[in-house]
Design a protein around this nucleic acid. Structure first.
Length: 501
RNA sequence: GACCCCAUCGUCUAGAGGCCUAGGACACCGGGUUUUCAUCCCGGCAACACGGGUUCAAAUCCCGUUGGGGUCGCCA
């Protein structure tokens, strides 16, 4: 069997979208699985919209996902170049073959004429197809017009009949040629069009399997027509379903993040996104959800790709991301959080001098509650700065005189403790609760509120250890003052001044 | 509009005629563990779009309807 060669062919006119990333992933997996080659080709024939920075961005995102390619721009390879704008001579050669064999012809219709044709077709309620006016030109007429300097495009001469192909995922697809007009191969400016170049590139790069988005299904017959006109052998096609938003419309910014770079910025791990993308449209057995890259390489196959479009679920991605964050080692999560907090201006050099060493431990305590790295900021505010506000519900609950002696006791215990470690602190408070006949929780909850401002936190004693005696005492003392002040305010409210008449 | 493609819980999916009173996962709701939260464990809710066939038997095959998506560019 011939070597498996697949390609991912993005156009550098924007960022790498998750749909594109999944297409790249499926191609990559297929190649790795088969021991074949994965080719990266840049489709930059749209000179207007193509930008080098988009190409760089796409490459960076692919690398971030860990999808490496065997041949591509800058890397090179035996069948390059791998940027379409650098392949002009190849297209010219193939075009010559088509025109000399009479499979393509010159078209001198102007935009205006075509626009008129299109307009009348629309008016008649029919779908537009090129009339084939210039197809009837004799070789002599055509030559004469060309010599006279008239601008011309080149069109494929599409014969009558139908094209049927067998898609690996869809099965047999048939399109009548009546549905296809003599489409343009080369624009009047001399630039080849997408359908033309993609076909030549795939053929010349010896691509064995074209795995791409469903949106190209309708283009496939056109491309097959070109392969045939050129006498090239056909690759196998596999059209994977599109990714939609939660409302079943095409996924876009409107739905939330849709570019790979955005997911990265929001604190998703590449292995989580990759795992999720693999599950969108593919499954192993309907039961296994967690896949490492190596698992995927071992298990992936195109015949388990579904036919129907899938809705992107941010919730499920988050679940996977949380799973991989929990699984990741602490150092890595710390580094990612650090980077995030720094970029978000939540920490600076001053902070790092003071609180830097404890930050790592702090992040360790919240690690298994993070769904994304960007959650970290919210979860450790009481560590990053002072406590300015308190959970309203909890505050109301502890806004009672009974809280005061409890916290005063807490202060005493904290002041008293020499070995300021989570373990000994907890032991101490267990003892105190026994001595005082109060429940352990009766100390813990108000203490947590005073120290973190929250009703929920990671292991409180660990936090106390990390925050240090001084800060905890200050916060408890201040909380006591606040309770007292609020309570006395309450009293004066109880005896309101007589209403003014 | 024409053509092409698709159709199982809210979402991702398993299911290739009897194994299906339709399985798993996310989300959601209960319960347990925990100082609270998160994690973890246990349980629950919830679907074969509709209508016709074919068959002893259909989520699975055929036809139609409806719904969704794609394409119809001198964009890719």
């Amino acid at each position: 069997m011939a070597q498996v060669r697949v390609r991912f062919a993005p156009s550098p006119t924007g960022f790498l979208h998750v749909g594109g990333a999944r297409t790249a992933l499926f191609n990559w997996l297929f190649a790795r699985r088969a021991g074949g080659k994965f080719v990266l080709r840049i489709e930059d024939t749209d000179r207007e919209r193509s930008k080098p920075e988009f190409e760089e961005g796409i490459i960076r995102d692919l690398q971030w996902l860990g999808l490496d390619w065997d041949e591509g721009p800058s890397l090179g390879g035996p069948l390059g170049p791998y940027r379409q704008t650098e392949r002009a001579s190849l297209y010219r050669d193939q075009l010559k073959k088509l025109t000399s064999a009479g499979n393509a012809y010159y078209c001198f219709c102007t935009h205006k004429e075509l626009e008129a044709e299109r307009a009348s077709a629309v008016e008649a309620g029919k779908s537009y197809r090129y009339s084939g006016k210039c197809r009837k030109l004799s070789p002599a007429e055509s030559e004469e017009k060309r010599k006279s300097g008239l601008p011309f495009s080149v069109r494929l001469r599409v014969a009558e009949g139908a094209t049927t192909f067998s898609d690996i995922i869809r099965g047999q697809v048939t399109v009548e040629h009546a549905e296809i007009d003599d489409f343009i191969l080369v624009r009047s400016g001399g630039e080849p069009t997408y359908n033309f170049v993609v076909t030549i590139d795939d053929a010349l790069m010896k691509i064995s399997h074209v795995i791409r988005g469903d949106d190209h299904l309708s283009n496939t017959p056109k491309q097959i027509l070109i392969y045939k006109a050129l006498g090239l052998s056909l690759p196998l096609f596999a059209h994977i379903p599109l990714i939609l938003g939660e409302d079943r419309t095409p996924l876009s910014k409107r739905h939330g993040a849709s570019a790979v770079g955005e997911f990265k910025r929001q604190g998703y791990l590449p292995e989580a996104l990759l795992n999720y993308l693999a599950l969108l449209g593919w499954s192993l057995d309907g039961k296994t959800e967690l896949f490492s890259k190596d698992d995927l390489i071992k298990k992936f196959s195109l015949d388990r790709v579904v036919k129907s479009a899938a809705c992107f679920s941010y919730e499920k991605l988050q679940w996977l991301n949380g799973h991989y964050i929990r699984e990741a080692d602490e150092e890595r999560v710390y580094q990612l959080c650090l980077e995030y907090l720094w970029d978000a201006d939540a920490i600076n050099e001053d902070f790092m001098r003071e609180g830097g060493p404890a930050l790592k431990r702090m992040i360790g305590t919240v690690k298994n509650s993070l769904k994304t790295i960007s959650d970290v900021g919210d979860q450790i505010t009481y560590f990053l700065g002072e406590v300015h506000s308190y959970d309203a519900e909890a505050f109301a609950k502890y806004l009672v005189p009974e809280t005061i002696p409890i916290l005063e006791k807490v202060v005493l215990v904290l002041e008293d403790t020499v070995a300021f470690s989570a373990m000994s602190l907890e032991e101490k408070f267990r003892e105190v609760s026994k001595e005082t006949g109060k429940k352990f929780a009766e100390f813990v909850h108000p203490m947590r509120l005073a120290i973190t401002g929250r009703a929920a936190s990671p292991n409180l004693f660990e936090l106390i250890e990390i925050l240090g005696k001084g800060r905890c005492l200050v916060r408890c003392l201040r909380f006591i003052q606040m309770i007292k002040a609020e309570l006395s305010k309450g009293e004066s409210v109880k005896t309101p001044a007589p209403p003014a008449e």
